[in-house]
Design a protein around this nucleic acid. Structure first.
Length: 679
RNA sequence: GGGGCUGUAGCUCAGUUGGUUAGAGCAGGGGACUCAUAAUCCCUGGGUCGCGGGUUCGAGUCCUGCCAGCCCUACCA
């Protein structure tokens, strides 16, 4: 087999927070791939770095009263410690805040200038006069211009409306509380449209992208004119100042991917290699592992930049989905937002590596960590099947050693050796789920062999020692094959296997030849079962950390303060004001879909007797019409009727919640009668 | 509304270019064993392959319409 030269990257984690189990999907996925390539004898360089620039870092450093450099150094250390603990082995871990990166950014910039891709224009942006900084959308809050809700984010409201922060009524800076002013500044843009020909061709036929991603890009971006990419930010900004545009800085997404190259360069300098050999060499493959959220930076801007600057284009951009826990988005409130550090206190990194491997496919699908499934899979597959194989003959084998010739095992070893091709293909294609499935089939075939051979009976008969040794030889060699195949995922298990059998596992080909005639070390427990209680404790601890972040404490209920933050209390009113609103108990007597409406249901409400009202309610995503019929609701009965596209709405049904599927109708206790007023 | 993806046993998923009675693991039920971390082994129940059309001698697999879910994006309130 020809040895390949491969450069691999994972996305650069942002230096604004700790690594959590969601990040780890990607780093574990990448690390498995890298270890696999090395086991196959390929030359593989794995580089990464902290992504350190941008307003968020600047703000956080200020808030903590220290320099940005100080903050990012501490973060980098924490990140690297977490990665190391999970067995993620980089050849080099750099930082985008490095001299090498600054120089490379300058080089890319020059190329873009020379290619005539840079343009300038003035844009208006909100500016915080107290904090003396321009405000990114998320640092502005104000009243929604559409629905009038106060304290909404800079780019969209909980009502679903999207707008520009300059449209907000009464905007406030979240940094200082000051009222931002509109200020004009010059921004620099990359005219991506000029690269359309190249990008279309690359997306279509380079083979670098998963099919669904290529479809998405073609349907979504390349279908219309590509917008200019705003690539600069005015001072103050933590980043690199643009040499030929004083007072302006490269936007963090310009220098972040260049950080891949800068980090490689640092490694090259330390190891006496040339950067060109890795980044301007057709023989060198380049693989980027990223999450779906940063797809378009890596599949449009980045190839465009590389092409313009004369660097190699990615061989593959391998995009994965997000992590969900117990079927839901990770959330601090439910304790499923687990940091790497917290995880490590409760469970072994090997478990997570294995579980992720069983779930990872080449598709851009979200991956669910069901805690029950997690524990069950690790306990059954790894402890019950794989390690058990060694565990059950370990004691016998220590006495006998391995047979000088490989005994008849009914073809098990041979079959497993042949399965190696298929397993390798699956690893190569990032289809770890498939690889693991095949490996577990082998483990499933191995245990019955021991069962039927009954080594424990042989042990009792001194005349059968040779037979016993043969059984051990088979079981341990099958175990060794599994360890080789699992080595990319479980390097520690491979190490322990190597120690037990006296030969380190360093190559995939070790799965093809049995180990014979050598002594066997004393068996040591290789892996423990997960206790589900440990995982529960992990969740509890994560939850507790969140509570600690929001002091108040001592409440027996752990309701979040977020709803109140999202929608603060309205101004005081008198009882007479309240009396103007006529709230009535009503019974839903009909509930229908409105075919043309996305969010609305058409309700017919009875106020008792013959009195009915037709009301359109935005609760389609939250309620099925059939289940509403018959129930009591509270309606605003004296609201001025409103003509809507679908008909007249003669009132309003009361409910809480931000909208969408999270809408909760007000209910009534037993005994209430339609038509009764709510006081 | 537009785009992308998904929909196969209770759960997690496999089903290669369409080809015999649709598979695995786990969970469930029954039994066996004791070397092993209440591990293992044997047997076993369970599916109108989201729904409807079409192409075909033959469709989970191809085409089409619809439904549901997730994501992106827009609009409407």
């Amino acid at each position: 087999m020809m040895s390949r030269q491969i450069l691999v990257t994972s996305a650069l984690p942002y230096a604004n927070g700790p690594i959590h189990i969601g990040h780890l999907v990607e780093y574990i996925q990448t690390d498995i791939w890298v270890r696999f390539q090395r086991l196959r004898g390929h030359r593989c360089l794995y580089v990464c770095a902290d992504d350190t620039h941008g307003t968020a870092i600047m703000i956080r450093a200020r808030a903590e009263g220290r320099s940005e450099e100080d903050l990012i150094a501490a973060m980098s250390e924490a990140h690297q410690r977490d990665f190391a603990a999970f067995g993620v082995q980089f050849d080099h871990y750099g930082s985008t805040h490095s001299d090498e990166n600054r120089a490379l950014c300058g080089e890319f910039w020059q190329s873009l200038r020379q290619a005539g891709l840079i343009t300038e224009r003035a844009i208006e942006q909100l500016y915080d006069p107290e904090a003396k900084t321009f405000l990114a959308d998320r640092f502005v809050r104000g009243t929604c211009p559409k629905c009038g809700r106060p304290d909404q984010a800079g780019d969209n409201c909980t009502c679903g409306h999207t707008y520009s922060p300059t449209d907000l009524i009464d905007p406030k800076s979240t940094l200082s509380g000051a009222t931002p002013v509109l200020r004009e500044s010059t921004h620099l843009f990359v005219q991506l449209e000029k690269l359309r020909g190249f990008l279309t061709e690359w997306v279509d036929s380079s083979g670098a992208l998963q099919e669904e991603i290529a479809n998405y890009l073609k349907g979504h971006f390349l279908g219309e004119e590509l917008r200019d990419w705003d690539i600069s930010r005015p001072a103050p900004y933590f980043g690199f100042e643009i040499p030929d545009s004083p007072g302006n800085y490269w936007y963090v997404w310009f220098d972040a991917p260049i950080g891949y190259i800068a980090s490689t360069q640092q490694w090259c300098q330390a190891n006496g290699e040339s950067l060109e050999h890795w980044w301007k060499n057709e023989a060198c493959e380049i693989h980027h592992f990223i999450g779906k959220d940063i797809t378009y930076f890596h599949t449009l801007f980045w190839p465009g930049m590389l092409k313009t600057a004369g660097y190699s284009l990615p061989t593959k951009v391998r995009i994965h989905g997000f992590l969900t826990v117990n079927g839901e988005k990770m959330s601090k409130r439910t304790g499923t937002f687990v940091s790497a550090e917290t995880y490590l206190k409760h469970a072994s990194p090997a478990y997570l590596r294995y579980f992720y491997a069983t779930k990872l496919t080449p598709r851009v699908e979200d991956l669910d960590l069901g805690l029950e499934e997690f524990a069950q899979k690790v306990n059954t597959d790894l402890v019950g099947k794989v390690v058990n194989l060694a565990s059950r003959v370990g004691k016998f084998a220590h006495g006998t050693g391995l047979s000088p010739q490989y005994p008849d095992d009914g073809g098990l070893f041979q079959a497993a050796a042949e399965a190696g091709h298929e397993i390798a293909q699956a690893y190569e294609a990032c289809d770890y789920a498939r690889a693991i499935r095949r490996i577990m089939e082998l483990a499933d075939a191995a245990n019955p062999f021991v069962e039927h051979a009954k080594p424990w009976e042989m042990k009792k008969d001194p005349n059968r020692e040779a037979e016993l040794r043969d059984v051990c030889t088979v079981a341990l060699n099958l175990f060794r094959q599994l360890s080789v195949y699992l080595a990319p995922v479980l390097p520690d298990l491979a190490t322990k296997c190597g120690e037990l059998l006296g030969e380190e596992i360093t190559s995939w080909d070790q799965s093809r030849q049995p180990l014979l005639g050598s002594p066997v070390g004393s068996f040591k427990r290789m892996m423990d079962r997960i206790q589900i209680e440990d995982l529960n404790k992990m969740i509890e601890e994560s939850k507790a950390q969140t509570d600690a972040d929001t002091p108040e404490g001592a409440s027996p209920f752990d309701d979040s303060d977020q709803p109140l933050k999202d929608e603060p209390l309205a101004e005081e009113i008198t009882i007479d004001d309240f009396a103007k609103v006529d709230l009535r108990v009503a019974r839903v007597i009909r509930a229908e879909q409105v075919p043309e409406a996305n969010k609305l249901l058409k309700l017919t409400l009875s106020l008792g007797g013959e009195e009915t009202r037709q009301v359109f309610a935005g609760i389609k995503a939250a309620y099925e019409p059939e289940k509403l019929v018959g129930r009591l609701v509270v309606m605003v009965a004296n609201l001025k009727p409103r003509k809507m596209r679908f008909g007249l709405s003669e009132g309003m049904v009361t409910a809480s919640g931000p909208g969408g599927a999270e809408v909760f109708l007000l209910g009534l206790d037993e005994g209430a009668k339609p038509g009764q007023r709510v006081h």
